[in-house]
Design a binder for these strands. Structure first.
Lengths: 242, 242
DNA sequence: CGTGGCATTGATGTAATTCAAAAGACGTGG
DNA sequence: CCACGTCTTTTGAATTACATCAATGCCACG
């Protein structure tokens, strides 16, 4: 959302102030709606297109051979995706809400456009930045936070991203399983944490998927932190790799 | 590393077959060596430069307020980094081995160059792809694998990346703490898994930091897989977010 | 030859998973 | 409209993988 509009239209620095960048991009875009559960960028071959969620929500999943699933990213309106060409094994992007609208931009045409419009080069870089930043944030969550912290983060993040600002009430259109696979927890743990947060007065439910945040701070602070002791740097030096 | 050379010099598709792309990029590069533990891209402001590891190794860390640390990425020769501008709180990139050589490219100049050389646009995109792909892989590891699987993956990954192909012997220039923070495990767990792997005949040590892989398969397969049951899609539909 | 940071190993605790089952939602069709 | 079947969500009890705490051994280095 912000990224796109910000970068596109509030960006008068480039010399060529002709056509708004949004118009340039949309000139090669194709809009398509998807139904709940339907796969986006089906079989046209991954790596061919850049995508943007216009409305609705989607999940970017990896499925492991044994049935485990990791949701790598939840895609909300304004989010771009489609960076990974390398024909990754079992990656799918699926709409979470009915009627999710997705714009797709062929990479080839974007690159052609970029040759004549430097603003686009910059925009593409910012889009990539954004994707990398989100990944990094998620890595921290998966690596360092406990269950309570993860769910708390998740609620706060969703509250912000869904309404583009710190909102108190939010609707979670995804299932508990989706939340679990997004946070790398079991469904049961997600439920337990949610009811625990309710019990502590941090949130209330106005429906299974409707949450109201009462105490934002209680969500941010998880369990007790743990200290760690680091001297300084790394191991004694050894010969360089052969 | 392959990315760089491949994309640069074995890329005769563009119309402009004048200067090799590598020469174009290196024309704006500054090379600098770093000592072990020294911070890269110190205080020139993050987001200003794109970097590439020429030789040696570096770690891309986040430090949490309570002292927890997560190594988001281990950077090997050929890896690019420096995508996150957003002045992230406590992010540092530090050399792991003495004399790590880093090339830095100012983003501004790269973008200027890109205006006249479409190949560079493509290369920048591929660099971003690569960074995103690595992040996604790491997310899977952090989210889905148990300790044994993580260490196994790590060894296999390092064996491949360090020698650009499946090698049996490898030198790990980083400390056990680094490995632990990379895999989001405790140091003790990393040690235990390593000695366990040794006990099972999957690896041997020819020195604390020198490992020889005896049974690659044993490293790939971790503990017992767990099944999961998914119906199909997400929750029953609700009203869209306010 | 001691000192300090790494590495390894053991004992213990605990957060989160797994197993099991009940209670809600929701849709379908009689 | 209600009964029925299927998912989803929730809660409980048992299990476990990993972290934490605590010691000791190990190499460098001064």
């Amino acid at each position: 959302m912000s990224l796109y509009r910000d970068a596109l239209d509030a960006n008068p620095q480039a010399g060529s102030c002709q056509v708004p960048l949004s118009a340039v991009m949309e000139s090669v875009a194709v809009l398509k709606p998807f139904r709940r559960g339907q796969q986006i960028h089906g079989r046209e071959g991954p790596g061919e297109h850049l995508y943007r969620i216009v409305s609705g929500m989607a999940r970017d999943c990896v499925l492991l051979a044994d049935g485990r699933r990791q949701i790598l990213d939840l895609l909300l309106p304004g989010d771009f995706f489609g960076f990974t060409d390398h024909a990754e094994p079992e990656v799918t992007v699926e709409a979470i809400v009915d009627g999710t609208l997705v714009a797709s931009y062929p990479w080839r045409r974007l690159e052609t456009l970029a040759e004549s419009d430097p603003r686009l080069v910059r925009l593409l870089r910012e889009i990539a930045f954004d994707a990398v930043s989100r990944s990094r944030g998620r890595m921290l969550i998966l690596g360092q936070l406990n269950a309570r912290e993860r769910v708390g983060c998740f609620l706060v993040e969703m509250a912000e991203r869904l309404s583009d600002g710190p909102a108190a009430a939010l609707v979670l259109p995804m299932s508990r399983y989706d939340i679990a696979d997004y946070l790398a927890l079991s469904v049961e743990t997600v439920c337990r944490v949610l009811t625990d947060l309710k019990g502590r007065g941090a949130i209330t439910f106005t429906g299974t998927n409707r949450v109201k945040i009462l105490d934002r701070c209680a969500l941010q602070a998880g369990g007790r932190p743990r200290e760690r002791r680091y001297a300084q740097s790394s191991a004694r030096q050894e010969a360089a790799p052969a």
